[in-house]
Structures are given as structure tokens and as C-alpha cells.
Computed example of a mutant assay.
Amino acid sequence: MTQVHSSTKTRTFTHLTEIERGQIAAYLEEGLSIREIARRIGRNVSTISREKQRGSVKQMDTRRKDRI
């Protein structure tokens, strides 16, 4: 028997471009909210939030304490 309907959806997302990443970084430095950045570049708020988290890595010294 052949399956007529597929249960998988076509993915509609696109990756952030380098320009968009630069815009996000610049807007964050200006102090704009994540929602405002998302509105300005036309992306979802969660996309901006994830990108912000990726760029904020805490470095630790050799004694496993956060660097200041």
C-alpha cells in the first residue's frame, strides 16, 4: 500500500546572515530590547534570544571561577 499523505512538514526557516548577526550585535550594544531588535530585522524573538546566548560565553580561569 502506498502512503498518500506525508506527515512531515517542509522547513521554512533560514539561517541568519553575517549582516543580520552584525546588526544584532550592534543593537545589543545600543541597549535595545530583544523584541525591538526582532521587530527591526524581521526575525522571531526566539531567534534573537538564541543568537544572544550563543555570543555570551563566560570564560573561566583555571580554578573554575568566572573571570571578571
Results as ranks from 00 to 15, higher is better:
T10E: 12
T14P: 02
I19Q: 14
S33I: 03
T10K: 12
G22Q: 10
E51L: 00
A25Y: 04
T47K: 01
E18M: 03
E36V: 09
Y27W: 08
Q23S: 04
I41V: 06
R54D: 03
Q23P: 02
V45H: 10
I37L: 02
K65T: 07
S56M: 09
E51S: 06
R54P: 01
N44S: 13
R50Y: 07
K65A: 10
D61P: 02
M60Q: 13
V45C: 04
R63M: 11
I68F: 02
Y27F: 13
R35H: 11
H5E: 15
D61H: 03
G42W: 02
T17W: 03
D66W: 13
T2F: 11
H5Y: 12
Q53P: 02
R63G: 01
I48K: 00
G55F: 00
E29V: 03
Y27S: 01
V57G: 05
E51A: 11
E20N: 00
T17N: 03
I68C: 01
I48P: 00
F13E: 13
E18P: 04
L32F: 09
G22F: 05
R39V: 12
E51V: 01
R35P: 08
D66R: 13
T2Y: 12
D66H: 08
T8P: 02
G42H: 05
Q3L: 14
V4P: 12
A25Q: 07
E51P: 02
T8L: 10
V45N: 09
E51R: 06
T17M: 00
R67G: 01
T10Q: 11
A38Q: 06
R67C: 10
H15M: 09
G31A: 02
L16H: 05
N44C: 08
V57Q: 08
E30D: 15
S49Y: 11
I19R: 14
D61Y: 01
G42P: 07
S7A: 15
G42K: 05
V57S: 12
I37K: 00
R50F: 11
V45L: 02
I34G: 10
T10I: 15
I19T: 15
T17S: 13
I41F: 01
M60H: 10
Q53G: 08
I19H: 14
S56V: 05
I24C: 02
G55Q: 09
E30A: 12
T8N: 15
I19G: 10
L16F: 11
D66T: 06
Q23Y: 07
K52R: 10
R50T: 06
R63S: 09
T12C: 13
